[in-house]
Design a protein around this nucleic acid. Structure first.
Lengths: 221, 221
DNA sequence: ATAAACAAGATTGTCGACAATCTTGCGGTG
DNA sequence: CACCGCAAGATTGTCGACAATCTTGTTTAT
């Protein structure tokens, strides 16, 4: 299930994962100032490891830092979410294109199997699908691109930010069955080794999600 | 000329910029092991600032690091360069699309002016163009997208890697006049506020570059 | 009363030392 | 002779203390 369960080897790793989790899940609210000394006492580690963790969070665009002033959690805005989805559309579209070229026959078979198992869940209205299943689908295609830069940008960077928005703005929306059909068509294009179509369908799929979210944001104003 | 001349405020900044420069320009060859103690004596700073600099280089994908083992400069490969250009095609294509929507009238005017001034240079065969002028053009469009994630990924990340490849594999190739015409058409699409076409032309432009580079790599084998 | 200048406090940046881990070469054992 | 284990050396990871910078509240001069 969890593809890349990144495992912590050093203290900084642990601090980084913990901090990221707390920020993404809103335990530490957005726009909060991150005090190095405060966190080091809270986590029972030295300031150096907290510092390194914060630096890594900055590289993920989860916190912003000013020299001699400090770091604070990024503030979420509707515009920021739109920007995020524009980048997603671009990168995941390319991922789908490359996946159609580079995925192995076995990987494609497994992807189809995943979709079939999810098909039952969708019929039975187990909306377990939305969170984990959607992620699983997108991850497989990203990894299937076999492009390490693409993978790194999406998996280590964007996806945590997207999740942060999802959690904190309460976007666990529906769009389940329609999204599922879109997934099916994307896999079909990949199975047919049709890069052009795969990219186009993936871009549309993400654009639809973006529009759906924009509509929700409108309503909540 | 230099758009974002990032200015160093802390010692770590200086160490980071210096290290990046030396790596990109090949003074420190690719695949070199980076010893923290060695660099700290060489740069006359503490190990902590070297450490932080190396961490930042890791975030840029310029060095790879293993826990408890150390960091080494990434190794360049033809496949790596291709992957880089695939990501560039994706991101800069989106940048051109967004630039067509979001650039101000003044920015577009300035972009046209830049092209006109370069037009003379191309005619006079001052191939000053290739390096700085090409960069200038692409940077303006990236910044014109007004998408901070896109800008950050390209300016802080990919472009230094691309330059590293260019310098070390000796890719100061021609393709001057034809690339210039492609630039002209892209700007025209942006002037017409045609996002679709701007993206398509930018993607083609980068694909051509990629093909050109691939051909050179073939020859040098 | 407003604004500039200063001082006290707190926070980040940098440093050198110690602890934990990995690498390397030697010696023992099958 | 090959392989495993172990010890010495070197390298990275972590720590607490000091230095440099920013923030804040008060004072002072216009």
């Amino acid at each position: 299930m969890d593809f890349f369960q990144e495992q912590a080897v050093t203290s900084s790793d642990k601090a980084f994962f913990r901090l990221r989790k707390e920020i993404v899940e809103g335990v530490i609210p957005s726009s909060t100032k991150l005090s190095e000394t405060e966190l080091s006492t809270k986590y029972q580690v030295s300031r150096a490891v907290v510092r390194e963790a914060i630096n890594r969070l900055e590289a993920c665009n989860i916190v912003e830092r000013k020299a001699n002033v400090g770091a604070r959690v990024v503030s979420l805005s509707p515009e920021g979410l739109i920007e995020l989805y524009q980048v997603r559309e671009s990168l995941e579209g390319m991922a789908a294109r490359l996946a159609a070229q580079h995925m192995t026959a076995q990987e494609i078979t497994e992807l189809n199997a995943l979709l079939n198992s999810q098909s039952d869940e969708v019929k039975n209205a187990e909306l377990y699908y939305q969170e984990a299943g959607d992620l699983d689908f997108h991850y497989r295609i990203i990894l299937g691109s076999k492009n390490s830069h693409l993978i790194s940008m999406l998996v280590n960077g964007l996806y945590h930010l997207v999740r942060m928005y999802r959690v904190q703005l309460g976007m666990a929306g529906p769009r389940v069955t329609s999204a599922f059909d879109e997934h099916k068509h994307i896999v079909q294009a990949i199975s047919n080794r049709d890069p052009e179509l795969a990219e186009m369908l993936m871009r549309r799929h993400i654009t639809y999600s973006k529009n759906n979210i924009e509509a929700k944001l409108q309503n909540s104003l």
